[in-house]
C-alpha cells in the first residue's frame, strides 16, 4: 500500500473548522482564547458565535480556570492557545481545576513542535505531550493530518473527559480520506508489516510512511502505526507489534524525554519487550529557521526514521 501524501491543510486549521461545526451542532459549545484566535483558528468560531466566545486577553492561567468553571457548569468548554503557553502557563490550573476534579475541559494547543519555524524556541512546544500525559484522567490526542484532526475534535466534544489536543502550525500531508473513522485510544495501522514497526504521531506519521516506502523497496516488511491518541495508549496494538515484528521505531516532533516513545517502551516492557529506537528532539531547544530546514536539521524526517529502522534491524539480527 502506497500513500500519496499530497500536501493538505495544517491541523490547526482543521481544528478551527471542526470547532465551527461543533458550534452549529451544540449550543453548549463555548470557546476561550488568549489573544491568538487568528493563529489558533478559533476566530472562525468567534465570528459565527460571538456570544459563546470569550476573549481572555493574554492571561492563560485565568483562561484555563475560567474554562474549567464553564465546563463545571455544564458547558462543552474549549480553551485554546499555542501549546507552549496554554500548557506551561496554565499547567497548575489544568492540574487543580481540570484534572484533579475530573472536569470536562477541552484544551487545544496549536503551534506544537519545532515546525512553527521562524518564531523560535520560546513559542515551540516540545514538552506538551509529557506535561499533558502527566495529568491523571486526561485524554491526549495528537492527530497527524487534517482529516483525523477534524474527526477527532468532533469526537472529543462528546467524550466526557478532560482532553489535550495537539495541533501544528505547518501545512502537512494528507494521510486519510474524509469519511475514515477513528477511535479514541486505538492506533491506526496504516500499513501491515512483519519485519519492523514504525510508530509515530503528528507530522512524523507522514515521515514514517515515507520511510516505509524506502524500506519496502529493499524488501523489508514495515508496519506503520499512527498513534493519534497518546493517552490512553493502545496497549494491544503495541504488544502485538512488539510480538509480531520484534523491533520498533517511535518518531515524534517532541522531546524524546517523556514523549510517545518512552510511553510505548513502557507498555512494551510490560507486555512484550522488543528492540526499540527513537526519533525525536534530544535534550535541546531548537532555533529559528524554515520549518523544513528545522525538521531536517533536528532529524525529524524520513531519512532519520530509516536510519533508526536500520539500527533496529541490525540489533534484531
Amino acid at each position: 500500500m502506497r500513500y500519496e501524501l499530497k500536501m493538505g491543510a495544517a491541523t490547526r486549521e482543521a481544528w478551527g473548522k471542526a470547532l465551527v461545526e461543533l458550534g452549529r451542532e451544540n449550543r453548549d459549545v463555548v470557546v476561550c482564547d488568549a489573544d491568538l484566535s487568528k493563529s489558533t483558528f478559533t476566530h472562525l468560531f468567534a465570528k459565527e458565535f460571538p456570544d459563546r466566545f470569550f476573549s481572555c486577553g493574554i492571561a492563560e492561567a485565568n483562561m484555563v480556570a475560567l474554562g474549567a468553571g464553564l465546563a463545571s457548569a455544564g458547558k462543552v468548554a474549549f480553551v485554546s492557545s499555542f501549546s507552549a503557553f496554554v500548557l506551561n502557563k496554565g499547567f497548575e490550573q489544568l492540574r487543580v481545576t481540570a484534572a484533579y476534579p475530573g472536569v470536562n475541559l477541552k484544551v487545544v494547543g496549536t503551534h506544537s513542535g519545532i515546525s512553527i519555524g521562524e518564531d523560535g524556541p520560546s513559542q515551540m512546544s516540545i514538552e506538551d505531550l509529557a506535561l499533558a500525559c502527566s495529568l491523571p484522567g486526561f485524554v491526549v490526542l495528537s492527530p497527524s493530518d487534517e482529516v483525523s484532526m477534524y474527526a477527532l475534535v468532533k469526537q472529543a466534544a462528546s467524550y466526557p473527559a478532560p482532553f489535550f489536543i495537539r495541533a501544528g502550525r505547518a501545512k502537512c500531508p494528507v494521510i486519510y480520506t474524509p469519511g475514515d473513522t477513528f477511535q479514541i485510544g486505538k492506533a491506526v495501522e496504516l500499513t501491515p508489516g512483519s519485519d519492523i514497526t514504525l510508530a509515530a504521531t503528528g507530522l512524523l506519521v507522514a515521515e514514517s510512511l515515507r520511510a516505509q516506502q524506502i524500506l519496502e523497496q529493499e524488501g523489508i516488511s514495515v508496519r506503520v502505526l499512527d498513534f493519534h491518541t497518546i493517552k490512553p495508549l493502545d496497549r494491544d496494538a503495541i504488544s502485538r507489534a512488539a510480538r509480531e515484528t520484534g523491533a520498533m521505531v517511535v518518531s515524534e516532533e517532541h522531546l524524546v524525554d517523556g514523549g510517545l516513545g518512552v510511553r510505548i517502551a513502557q507498555v512494551a516492557s510490560e507486555t512484550h519487550p522488543c528492540i526499540m529506537e527513537y526519533v525525536g528532539v534530544r535534550n535541546t531547544y531548537a532555533e529559528s529557521g524554515t520549518p523544513e530546514g528545522l525538521l531536517d536539521k533536528y532529524g525529524l524526517v524520513a531519512r532519520e526514521v530509516v536510519a533508526a529502522a536500520r539500527r533496529a534491524l541490525a540489533r534484531k539480527r
Binding site: 463555548v30 470569550f54 485565568n62 483562561m63 480556570a65 475560567l66 468553571g69 463545571s72 455544564g74
Partner: peptide, 11 residues
C-alpha cells in the same frame, strides 16, 4: 475567582 467567573459566564 477564575472558576467562579466561568460558572457565572455559563449562567
Amino acid at each position: 475567582l477564575s472558576l467562579g467567573l466561568g460558572m457565572a459566564a455559563a449562567a
